[in-house]
Computed example of a mutant assay.
Amino acid sequence: MPETVPAYTAAQVRDAERPLLYDGQPLMDRAAAALAQIVQALVDEIIDERPEEQPRILVLAGSGDNGGDALLAAAALQRADVEVLTTGTRVHEHGLATALAQVAELVELADLRDAGTVCDLVLDGILGIGTAADPALRGTARDAVSLLLPAVRDAATRVVAVDLPSGLQPDDGSTADDTVLPATVTVTFGAVKVGLTVGRGPELSGELVLVDLGLGDGLADVPAAGEASISRVVEG
Rank of each mutant, 00 (worst) to 15 (best):
A110Q: 15
L121Y: 13
T184P: 00
G139C: 13
P6K: 03
V185Q: 05
D143W: 03
D171E: 12
A101V: 13
A225Y: 02
L77W: 08
A228F: 06
D65H: 15
L106K: 15
T131F: 03
V211I: 06
I38D: 06
A220N: 02
E93G: 01
T140G: 00
K193G: 01
G206Q: 14
A144R: 09
D120S: 10
G236N: 10
L21Q: 03
E105K: 10
L109I: 07
A33P: 00
V185W: 01
G64W: 07
S205V: 10
T197F: 02
E203A: 04
V194C: 01
K193C: 02
G173N: 01
A76Y: 03
A76V: 06
R113W: 05
A220G: 02
V233S: 00
H94P: 07
P6Y: 07
V233T: 05
L42C: 03
R14Y: 03
T131P: 01
T157I: 13
S174A: 13
P55L: 05
T186R: 04
L127S: 07
A61W: 12
A73K: 12
I126T: 08
L27H: 11
S205Q: 10
D178W: 11
V103W: 01
R50A: 03
L213M: 13
G95E: 10
M1A: 02
V43S: 00
D69Q: 10
G218H: 05
P150G: 12
E203L: 05
G214L: 03
G226A: 03
D81N: 08
Q12H: 02
H92F: 09
R14A: 11
A151M: 09
L100E: 15
E45C: 09
E3V: 15
V43H: 00
L109R: 05
R30T: 06
E53V: 08
Q37G: 10
V159E: 11
R158S: 09
V187I: 02
G206C: 14
G218S: 06
S166E: 11
L181R: 07
L71E: 12
D15C: 04
L210D: 10
A225G: 06
A99V: 11
R18Y: 11
D81A: 06
L148W: 08
A73G: 06
T140E: 05
V185L: 01
Y8G: 06
I47K: 10
A176C: 14
G226Q: 06
A141Y: 10
T87Y: 04
L168W: 04
E235I: 12
R113V: 14
